[in-house]
């Protein structure tokens, strides 16, 4: 499969759609999936530069997904997303994490962050 810039892993259909719209507007290629297993598979196949991972993902949380991604490719950057930052109790001990995106987010800030991350990664 063709390499993409960003893989989005979020169980919320609205979020996936709006992130795709945003990233496409910023001319980033992206794929969005709705659960952890599909997320891992897609990362493996598409080797993205960035994975945007929702922390609350049902049975397998976003931290686990990030650790698994790290095991597959150590150059994939991770951007976590959460609707409730106060609930993050475990320290984020994953390499390559570029930040935690709080919902609701600002489209331009997101685009800047993605651009920065991807360009830095490509250097």
């Amino acid at each position: 499969m063709k390499r993409v810039d960003v893989v989005i892993i979020d169980d919320d259909e609205g979020i996936r759609w709006v992130l795709q719209q945003t990233l496409e507007m910023g001319n980033f290629s992206c794929v969005a999936v709705n659960n952890a297993i599909q997320g891992i598979n897609t990362v493996m196949n598409c080797h993205p530069r960035l994975a945007i991972v929702d922390i609350k993902l049902g049975a397998v949380n976003g931290f686990k997904v990030a650790r698994m991604i790290r095991q597959i490719y150590d150059d994939v950057k991770i951007l976590f997303m959460t609707g409730y930052k106060e609930a993050i109790t475990e320290p984020i001990e994953v390499d390559n994490v570029v930040g935690v995106l709080e919902k609701p987010f600002d489209v331009e800030e997101l685009l800047q962050l993605v651009a920065k991350t991807i360009s830095r990664g490509s250097v």
């Binding site: 919320d12 609205g14 979020i15 759609w17 919902k103 609701p104």
Partner: peptide
């Protein structure tokens, strides 16, 4: 919070 912020985030975006 989690449930509400998803549609909220989508709407704002």
């Amino acid at each position: 919070a989690h449930e509400i912020r998803n549609p909220l985030a989508t709407a704002k975006a």
